[in-house]
Amino acid sequence: MSPVLVTGSAGFIGNHVALALLRQGVPVVGLDNLTPYYDVALKEARLARLRAFPGFTEARIDLANREAVAALFGAHRFTRVVHLAAQAGVRYSLEHPAAYIDSNLVGFANLLEGCRAAATGHLVYASTSSVYGANTNMPFSPHAGADHPLTLYAATKRANELMAHSYSHLFRIPVTGVRLFTVYGPWGRPDMALFKFAEAIVQGRPIDVYGEGRMQRDFTYVDDVVTAILGLLDRPPVPDAAWSGDRPDPASSGVAPYRLYNVGSDRPVDLMRYVRLLEEKLGLTADIRLLPIQPGDVPATWADIDDLARDVGYAPATPVEVGVERFVDWFRTYQAGRQPA
C-alpha cells in the first residue's frame, strides 16, 4: 500500500489525521518542519504518537524549500495527499505577514508542483472559514462568493483555493478543499481560545474575551473534522457534467475535478457559553475581561454542511459539552507532565 502524505503532521489537525490513518493500517509520510510559532515540545509530543507506528515515516522539510519538496515527491510518488500544514492564526498575520507568504503561498505552490509531477490521484487541503470575511449571509455556503477576506491569513487561504482550482483544471489533479470552522479538542494549539482560556484559568490569570462576549462560533470537534477529511479522501471529485458554461458554481467548478466543502458542526455557540462550559469542566471560575472585537475578527460563523452530509454522510457527532470535557481531560493530563494517548 502506498503511503499517504500528511503535511503538518506535528500540528493539531494533521496529527489527528495521520494517527487515524495509521490506526487503519495506512502508511503515512508526515511532513513538518516544527516551526516555533508555538511550543515545539507540544509538537514533539504529538509526533511521538505517530512514531509508535511502524508505518510512519517522518519528513522534516520546509514546504517553502522547492528542491526538498520535489525530492520527496520524486521518492514516493504519492497517490494521495492531505495538506494541513500552514502558518495559522488570524491575529499573528497582522504582525508577521512574511510567514504567511512563505508557508501558505510559496509552500502551497511547491506542494501543487509536487502533485503535478507525481500525477497525484487526490489532494485534500485545508482552507478556512475565515475566507468568508465580510460576508454576513449565514449560514456560510460554499456556493456563495468568498472574495472579501478581512485578514492576510484568510487571503492566503482563498488564494490557495484559486491556485488549487487552476492546477486541477490544467493538470487534471482531483482536488478537494475543506473550509474548517473553529476546530478544537485534545492536542489543540496553545494560541487558540480553548487552550489559552484553560491555561489562564488554572493559573489564576484573567482571560480576554473579545467582541464583548457576544461573538458566536461554529465550534467543530477535531474527531468530526478527521471523519470528514478521511471520508473525502476516498472520494476524488469529478468535473460537473451538468455545467452549461454559465456562471460556474464556486463550490464545484465545471471544468475541473475540484470541490470545496465546509466542515463545521452546524451549531453556532455563544462564546460566553463556551467559556462557562470550560469553567464547569475545570471546576474553576474565570476572571473575564470583556474587550472590543479585534481587527480581522467577525462577529459570528455558521457552516452550511449540507453538501458534506449528502456526499459522504457527514454528521458531526460531538456536542460542545462533550468536546470541552474531553479537552479538559486531556489538558489536565498533559499539564501534569504525562503523555496521554
Rank of each mutant, 00 (worst) to 15 (best):
E279P: 06
P239T: 08
V226M: 03
D147M: 12
V225I: 06
A45S: 12
R158T: 04
L162E: 14
A117P: 01
Y210N: 11
T301L: 00
L5K: 06
H76L: 12
P97E: 09
V269E: 11
L180N: 04
A256Y: 06
A41Q: 14
A59M: 11
G114Q: 05
R235E: 13
P27E: 11
A193Y: 05
S141C: 14
M138Y: 09
V263E: 02
G30Q: 00
T176P: 03
F327D: 08
A18P: 00
L72D: 06
V328P: 07
L123Q: 01
D218K: 07
V269M: 12
P36Y: 09
A68W: 00
Q294G: 02
Q335M: 13
L47R: 07
E325W: 02
A48F: 00
R205E: 14
A98P: 03
Q339H: 12
M138G: 07
T57E: 15
A242L: 15
G145L: 13
P190W: 02
E199F: 06
D208K: 10
S9R: 06
R247M: 13
G231F: 06
L277C: 04
A193Q: 10
A118T: 08
P248M: 11
L277G: 07
A119Y: 11
A155E: 02
L34Q: 06
P268D: 06
W330Q: 09
W187H: 05
Y274W: 11
R189C: 10
Q87L: 01
P3G: 09
L63Q: 09
A48V: 10
